[in-house]
Every structure is written in C-alpha cells, then in structure tokens.
Amino acid sequence: MESGFYGSSLDGNLKCKFEESGLANTHEIMEKAVRWFRSRSIFVVAYGTGCGAIEMPPTFTSRYDAERMGVVGVATPRQADLIILSGYLAYKTLRRVIRTYEQMQKPRYIMTLGSCPINGGMYWDSYNTIKKLDDYLPIDVSVTGCMPRPEAVIDGFVLLQERIRNGEKAGWEKYDENFEFYKENQKRVLGGHIDPSYETDWYNLKSGGKA
C-alpha cells in the first residue's frame, strides 16, 4: 500500500474490492470525488510570521470572505490542512514552524505570503532570518508581493484547490520522500537544537520506521 485513503490514490484493499466486483473504474471516480471534496474544505492555521499577517484578517472576514470557497481558519495545527506562513522567518520562528508543520495531519499543505520566504525579501541580509524557505519545508503555493493583497491570497487558494483537484504531487509527499534532505538543511541553520521529529511511526518503532 503506497499511501492510504488520504493519499493521492485510494486504499489498496478498497481498490481490489472494486475490481473484484467488476467496477474497475469506480476507484478513479471515487478518487476524483475525494479530491474535489478535499479541495473545497481547506482548514487553515494562519501562522503570522511576518508583516504579511496583516492581510489575513481581511481575507477571512466579510470583505473578502474566503469562507465562500471553503477556506476556514482553525485554532490548532492538528485540525488544519493548510498552514499559511506570512512573511520572513527568523531561525527561532523556523524551529517552531517545523514543529507546527509536523504536527499537522496529512494531507497538509504550505502556503507562503510575500517575497521574504522566497528569497529573503528586504531581510535578505539579516543575521537572524532564513532566505529560502523551500530548503527547510516543502512549499505548495508561494504568493508573491510585499505584502500580497487579499485578492492575491485568494488567487493562491484557487491555485491550491486546482492542484488538489488535479491530484498533483503535494509538498507533504515530497517532504516524506526527501526527508533527509530537509532535515539536513534544518540542522545546518538550527544547529543541534532541533526539536524531536514528529515524523515517526510510533506503531512500528522497532522496524525503525518513518511514517
């Protein structure tokens, strides 16, 4: 079983059952339906790391009303599908963001606002901020601008929904595949002071399993 029901393909057992009963195409249809529903219910934990956070209240409240697209804010990372990182990340913040991201359940997505997470933005020469966030975490959508207007943020949501609907490879899958690469980069800037990883398969610890 490559990935579970939550993943990009249906649960293997279910797929076999469909095929046994002569419904070979059903799993594809089901998959499409699941992806469509998923794209229309995105729960967001908004992590205001930088100045861009100021654009999130208008995005989620009545003026721009992201809820009409199924995008709703939640309180904790464990309930969220999407984490929005809105701006530059200090090393100190990065440490917490990694922890937050790893607490989220799969499927999970990352959206960044502004140019700072892309190339450092106007904080490129700061002694305490990172320049390229995608070295440390997999980004699904980057919204550019300094800072992006709510329209642009909503455009980012639309793009993300499209990608989910089309079943494109998401960031969390890349994170799983290139786990060592990401961890190595995180260690490089955060030193040895990095929180224990949540990416552990607690049920198969003996087989040394990573989730």
Partner: peptide, 15 residues
C-alpha cells in the same frame, strides 16, 4: 566588528 554580510552568506546562500 561582526561581519553581518559574511555571516549571512555563509548561512544562507542566494537563490
């Protein structure tokens, strides 16, 4: 006397 630029370049290479 802390060379910020050198430190930044050593920690965070440019894209």
């Amino acid at each position: 006397d802390f060379d910020t630029l050198e430190y930044v370049n050593s920690m965070n290479p440019f894209r």
